[in-house]
Design a protein around this nucleic acid. Structure first.
Lengths: 132, 132
DNA sequence: ATTGACCCTCCAGTTACTGGAAGCCCTACA
DNA sequence: TGTAGGGCTTCCAGTAACTGGAGGGTCAAT
């Protein structure tokens, strides 16, 4: 199978597939003409990677997960540990973003958004408090 | 003022301050010995940048906001537009992360996390469904 | 004269791709 | 047989916003 077919079947762009080969996530053979030669198994791995990436796992996480996926002697606690750590980080990010949102929503509400220069958003960002 | 002082007063690391100069966000003078020479105004700008960055604004947003901050003829709607667009993007990110969290929480709950290899997390990532 | 704390300028690395240039390969069609 | 197209290849550069480190001047105090 050529890279185009694999891309269509796995949903992973050709460029990304080449990149994944470069960093050693997959190791396709080569045809005589120099084209990458993929198998069904590669399609599965790429789909796996696509899904894992969509869930926000880093490439290094993916590497680990892929290894566990292929390891018949894995212990599910290993997988769970990776997922839990990732989940923690996602929750951290959510909290950070929510805190930003709270502040920004507040500032946006306060700002008149008209033709005058006075702006509570800039006032909030500015370290110099306008005195009265 | 040297970079160390400015860093302490603004909360922005020296490396970052140098970077901000490189990309043209601030333009300190130079002393005879080659050291950057900062003013109070630079401290204010850097604190402004630090706060804007903490709220998640991109550097390009910061450039715009800083220009508006210094423009006496600005209209608050310009500032508000930048903030609203940023807010939209934050909300998008939050939704994406929450969707990941939902899926991951579900998977993590389902996974036994013991010494056996069976793992719903890997099963979910895998495109090959285990047949019965 | 020397120490230690500053400061300077490069250069490289981070994350995970993505775009583009230059060029070979393969198939189909006139 | 020539050519047009689509697909494949490699390599280089760029993205965002820094951060770390090497190698080397500067300054104040001892």
């Amino acid at each position: 199978m050529n890279i185009g077919d694999v891309s269509r079947q796995s949903g992973v762009p050709p460029k990304t597939i080449r990149y994944y080969e470069e960093i050693g996530l997959i190791r396709p053979n080569r045809s005589e003409n120099g084209y990458r030669a993929f198998t069904e198994n590669h399609v599965h791995k790429l789909a796996f990677l696509g899904r894992a990436r969509a869930l926000g796992f880093t490439i290094e996480d993916c590497r680990t997960l892929l290894a566990l996926y292929e390891d018949e002697n894995r212990e599910s606690m290993q997988v769970k540990a990776v997922a839990e750590e990732h989940l923690r980080q996602i929750e951290e990010k959510i909290e950070k973003l929510q805190s930003m949102r709270t502040t920004l929503t507040d500032l946006v509400e306060k700002c008149a958004g008209d033709h005058r220069p006075d702006c509570p958003i800039l006032a909030d960002l500015s370290p110099v408090q306008l005195s009265e």
